[in-house]
């Protein structure tokens, strides 16, 4: 595990330029549900053509390459600081090669760092695990959809949302209504119930790493995911807010414990450009994968 920088650059390239198979399949299915010639069908056609072009040209799927969020699972004894340094080098290199847009702006001075490195950027989560494999998952989270992500505190009187799963359902529907097309709909929702205001948002984003086709191991949450997927689409907002049958193409919910006094519902809205990729280092081998490949 001495020099992984090039593999890390390749991980970033894949995440930014190659939309994963499960997302592309969902977008194709969504196109097929719209009536031919409609604005919604046209939007999906453009999206899919763009995805194909980006892959062929190795150019970013969207010019906003977003916040880079890394989840690193490392074997016992790994040198975490060295790993982080190599990941940071790789991010700067990927920016120099135009796989990423320079996206890290100093909040006080307004100056762009030019290489995607800066305070709190990129985002790292390091966890030690039993396996001797090093696994790195990367998600690119765009700014437009981050702006429509939101957090509720239950009960919510205006929405008649109490402190139970039905209350969760109501506020998530409201979040999707409020977002309209502005987060580059259709989107995928990562939802966290519980936690505090900080952990709730982090856990909501973590849900976005789940394969679109998985089933929540908790049967009650699984049922809520299914119902929300259906009901969000009844809103009829459609791609870009043009109106249409697909407003959301995935709902993934996780639950944390909470304080008795608090009941937060955090909604991470991910745009159609739902970019993620995985790298596993097994001995000398670097194995890249993306959902639905």
């Amino acid at each position: 595990m001495d020099n992984l920088r090039d593999s890390f650059v390749e991980l970033v390239r894949r995440a930014s330029t190659n939309l994963s198979g499960d997302v592309e399949a969902a977008l194709k299915a969504a196109r097929d549900r719209e009536s031919p010639g409609s604005a919604a069908a046209g939007a999906f056609e453009a999206i899919l053509e763009n995805v194909t072009l980006a892959r062929a040209q190795s150019t970013p799927v969207c010019q906003d390459t977003g916040t880079l969020i890394f989840y690193v699972h490392y074997p016992m004894g790994a040198h975490v600081r060295a790993l982080q340094a190599q990941l940071e080098e790789a991010v700067a290199e990927a920016t120099a090669r135009s796989y990423l847009r320079p996206n890290a702006v100093d909040s006080a001075t307004g100056k762009n760092s030019g290489n995607n490195l800066g305070g709190g950027m990129p985002v790292f989560h390091f966890t030690e695990w039993e396996s001797d494999v090093l696994r790195i998952d990367l998600l690119l989270k765009g700014g437009g959809c981050e702006n429509v992500s939101t957090q509720y505190k239950l009960p919510d009187t205006a929405l008649k949302a109490g402190r139970d799963l039905d209350g969760v359902r109501k506020v998530v529907l409201d979040a999707v209504y409020q977002a309209q097309g502005k987060g580059c709909a259709p989107g995928v929702l990562g939802v966290a119930i519980g936690g505090d205001r900080g952990t709730g948002y982090v856990f909501a984003k973590e849900q976005l790493f789940r394969p679109l086709g998985d089933t929540n191991p908790d049967p009650e949450l699984a049922a809520l995911e299914e119902r929300l997927l259906r009901e969000c689409n009844e809103l009829g907002i459609g791609p870009m807010g043009f109106g249409g049958r697909t407003t959301v193409f995935g709902v993934k919910i996780g639950a944390y414990h909470r304080l008795p006094a608090c009941y937060f519902v955090s909604v991470a809205y991910m745009c159609w450009a739902h970019r993620r990729a995985r790298l596993e280092i097994r001995g000398d081998e670097a194995i890249f994968s993306q959902e639905g490949d």
Partner: peptide, 13 residues
């Protein structure tokens, strides 16, 4: 006229 948000490569082409 609404362009498709995120379709950066397509529009550049």
């Amino acid at each position: 006229f609404h362009a498709v948000g995120g379709a950066a490569s397509l529009i550049a082409n």
